[in-house]
């Protein structure tokens, strides 16, 4: 009866949730193909965690339909739970147990059996670089180690769908990159990843598709590049030999002219098709272009344009995260 699994990992339609008068999610539609990385991007308070809690059976929705790996999380919660792994924003490890005991606990709860549980534990400790700290209580771990243990615990049961709720919030840049590598490795193994983040760079680096969540609604959805292209601020800059060329191009295309540089800034579609049609029009009009450059906005511009308030509102997140941002800016001169 149920269609074969795999094709769609998460499907949601009209998902709503309110706390009293406050609408946290106001009708969310999602479709995530299996084997991809989907990122829900938004500032604090946008509703990301609520979304994850509903999809992972922790809380109920007020309305809407969902299917997780072919199952309804409301009517068949255990069928969903058996196939997902969840790493929340707050570490879900037992601080009184050692890293090894935490993993063994998960192995026992997944009923792996003694030998398989031991093997899986050893393998995960090795893979997450925790073998040396295996016998130490998790409460003594650093933030990055706790997060790795947390993620390792989510993987003991071999989930087909992994929810990562702000997995790198509060981590230093090095731990963050380490975690990104791990996540990429999981995707290579065929795991579907649902990632929430407030870091644009993280979504940009990891996600196949990004949905921008703003005050409980999805402001935009698409690939990182697609989102960037859709925003004002993406433009083509044309430079001409002569003022006559510049004038002719302006009459043809509009845009903003810069007389000093003999350049014209044309806003709009910066995709391949758009460029081709732009160049065709210039050719047909016999206008010679000296130089062409394409400017795509980064996701910061996207966010600002889509939500009207940018991520700067979220000062705390930036304060936690200056090194990565600084390095990123430096890397893109």
């Amino acid at each position: 009866m149920a269609p074969p699994p795999a094709r769609t990992a998460v499907a949601a339609a009209g998902l709503r949730k309110s706390y009293g008068d406050q609408t946290v999610l106001g009708g969310i539609d999602l479709e995530i193909p299996a084997g991809t990385v989907f990122s829900l991007l938004g500032p604090n308070g946008a509703g990301k965690t609520t979304m994850v809690k509903i999809l992972t059976t922790l809380i109920g929705a007020d309305g809407g339909r969902m299917r997780i790996l072919g199952h309804d999380p409301v009517r068949e919660p255990d069928a969903v739970r058996a196939q997902i792994g969840v790493t929340g924003q707050y570490s879900a490890v037992d601080g009184l147990l050692t890293g090894e005991e935490n993993l063994r606990l998960m192995a026992d709860l997944h009923r792996l059996g003694r030998r398989a549980g031991r093997a899986r534990t050893a393998e995960l400790l090795e893979r997450f670089d925790l073998a040396d700290a295996a016998r130490k209580p998790a409460s003594a771990y650093s933030g990055g180690m706790r997060r790795r243990l947390d993620l390792a615990m989510s993987l003991v049961g071999g989930p087909r769908l992994l929810f990562l709720d702000e997995p790198t919030t509060g981590l230093d840049p090095r731990s963050r990159r380490g975690l990104w590598d791990i996540i990429r490795g999981l995707v290579a193994d065929g795991v579907t990843v649902f990632l929430t983040t407030q870091y644009l760079e993280e979504a940009d680096r990891l996600a196949d598709r990004i949905a921008v969540l703003d005050r409980g609604t999805i402001a935009a959805e698409g690939t990182a590049d697609g989102l960037k292209r859709r925003v004002a601020g993406g433009h083509v800059r044309l430079r001409f030999d002569t003022a006559a060329g510049l004038g002719a191009a302006e009459r043809l295309l509009g845009g903003r002219r810069d007389d000093e540089a003999l350049a014209l800034q044309v806003p709009g579609d910066t995709g391949v098709a758009g460029l081709r049609s732009l160049l065709t029009r210039l050719d047909d009009a016999g206008i010679a272009v000296e130089e062409l450059s394409v400017h795509t906005p980064d996701l910061d511009d996207v966010f600002l344009a889509l939500t009207g308030h940018g991520t700067g509102a979220d000062a705390g997140a930036h304060a936690q995260n200056p090194p990565v941002h600084a390095q990123r800016k430096a890397a893109q001169p």
Partner: peptide, 12 residues
Amino acid sequence: EGIVARFRTMAI
């Protein structure tokens, strides 16, 4: 603690 939230998302 977060660990109970984890238990709640597991098929146990």
